[in-house]
Design a protein around this nucleic acid. Structure first.
Lengths: 334, 334
DNA sequence: CTGAAAGCGCTTACAG
DNA sequence: CTGAAAGCGCTTACAG
């Protein structure tokens, strides 16, 4: 591949002038520029991005750090991030951590050595001090889906409201014994969703029944079993709100296997609006997060951060974007 | 961040010696090495990968080029690629083309400028000359899912066999009027699957009915409508084999809406084994491609190619890996 | 408007 | 076993 020296030689100028003609920061006589452009065309010259990165310290690449691309909320998010990044000239490096902090830390280290320009993390947990430290060092960071406070730019939904709205909707269809399938309680997102459920019960004057909260050990097996216990117990619910669509779908399968009619016997509602939800039988009612848009918004924010840091050496103050959610009623609810 | 000069100064040696101590290609007195290692620890020195890349021409990153991460066959594949790459010290750059040749070509250009070490393409079509050219230039390339001949390393399944097996299975349950939902006929993968269907009919002495082939214009709407026409027509099938699980699921929804019982009235079978298939009602019978394994195999092949090129300047001869498929019978077939 | 030089942070052939 | 120097391919302050 031709390099800048080859072009300079062919055009009869110095490499510096070629660079200037290309970057246009400084004036170049238009006749000279012509010659250079010609030489570039002849040689099919493309600037070596690696050399530019070494010089500038910016690689025009971002990292997308997610727990698991097989979790159906992430493909749409990923697509949104990639589309915006690509449109703005950035490469997207995909980092799938499997929720392993170790893998995540290793990734961060390698990526810093590679001069990656910024990070989108959808993996925040209690143990994510390394993310705060990275942000502290001045590295552009955007948090997605999961966040804790307003110290770092974030793109999230109002998770209290999401579960609140869902619970209220279920009540509005006449349900009074609304069970709740809990998520990982160490994550703020699931604490918030549970709070939304509790808040709604309180506002609706519905008594909270602790035995209607479904705790699982995390495996699909487990939630299936928990569902069986719930519906074979004394206080059978008339609705189940699941903290995620994934959980709702497992619960629906269990109810189906036990001969319980959805929604006639029990309404089921999820949260997230993953694509599968529309394909199961009956199609799942849910509260939609705009996944693709959240991804594209996060990428836009991150690249703004990167640019303001580079161009004005100015870290913008963090902003938390709370995006709108929407109740989607299909056929799994009365 | 500390650089190699800082380390050299602190250890009282030259930068070259630090480099040698780190890379171990040449001997360094163990006492000197100690001093250097100490300095590295004190300064928390990490080699700048960008500088290494500029020098060596290898970036330890690979590109995964796919049409659409939202298509459920790709998350598992992507995860397999990423896991292997990460394990071997490579970054995965995700390129989502939306089937746009233009976007793909742009990506290739940018990635070459960035010294990406190799490409996995799951996007091969009739118009993919640029991929062959890339391979011709000596750039490591692996084809995934879609391939044309044995000129380039590939990881695929035997798509003729896949559809042949599915058709035979349907026939073995007593079906004789087996409809087929066609895929994009310009792609070899779908030509092969159709051939498998035809071959099986012939071997089974089942007459081929052209009116049982479902052609769609690509949209979900369209396939839904085609399904309606098929089942309201004169020669109603007793089974439908879909060229993909995605299509099978749309067809199942249509049949359900028209009050047709699956599998009692019509058996439905797909190909691919996407995760959703197990969650729909009834769970979908299908022929499984080992998606995660295909991804990890492709990444392993690509990195072998890269290493043999780098270490021995030796391009291994192309190998086409045909991975095993497996019939999975759930409840959508009799 | 343009050239020569220095520098980004490494690695490695050469010399000793 | 180790240092000094050149080079990977750019960009940019400096000088003219």
């Amino acid at each position: 591949m031709a390099n800048i020296k080859d072009v300079a030689k062919l055009a009869g100028v110095s490499p510096g002038t070629v660079s200037r003609a290309l970057n246009g920061k400084s004036y170049v006589k238009s006749e000279t520029r012509e010659r250079i452009l010609n030489a570039i065309k002849q040689l099919d010259y493309k600037p070596n991005t690696v050399a530019q990165t070494l010089k500038a310290g910016y690689s025009h690449s971002i990292a997308l750090v997610i727990p698991n691309i097989e979790n159906p909320i992430f493909p749409s998010i990923t697509k949104g991030v990639e589309a915006v990044a690509n449109g703005l000239g950035y490469m997207t490096i995909l980092c799938n951590t499997g929720e392993s902090i170790e893998r995540e830390k290793k990734y961060i280290q390698s990526l810093m050595n590679r001069a990656v320009d910024g990070f989108i993390f959808a993996t925040l947990t209690d143990k994510s001090n390394h993310i705060y430290e990275l942000h502290q060092k001045g590295v552009p960071v955007v948090l997605l889906m999961r966040s804790k406070d307003d110290l770092i730019d974030s793109v999230i939904v109002d998770n209290v409201k999401v579960a609140y709205d869902a619970t209220k909707y279920l009540a509005s269809t006449g349900c009074r014994k609304i069970a709740y399938a809990m998520g990982d309680q160490s994550l703020k997102i699931y604490k918030d969703r549970f709070k939304g459920y509790m808040d709604a019960l309180r506002d609706l004057n519905i008594l909270f029944h602790p035995e209607l909260v479904m705790y699982e050990s995390g495996s699909e097996e487990s939630l299936y079993g928990v569902t069986r216990n719930l519906v074979s117990g004394l206080s059978k619910p008339d609705a189940i709100l699941a903290s995620t669509d994934n959980r709702a779908i497992i619960i629906m399968r269990a109810l189906h296997d036990f001969g319980i009619k959805i929604p006639d016997d029990i309404s089921v509602m999820g949260i997230d609006n993953i694509p599968v939800g529309a394909m199961v039988e009956p199609p799942l009612s849910t509260v939609a997060q705009p996944l693709y848009q959240m991804g594209s918004l996060a990428a836009n924010k991150l690249i703004s951060l990167i640019r303001s840091k580079r161009d004005r050496n100015n870290m913008l103050p963090p902003e938390v974007d709370v995006v709108k959610t929407e109740i989607i009623i299909r056929q799994s609810t009365r």
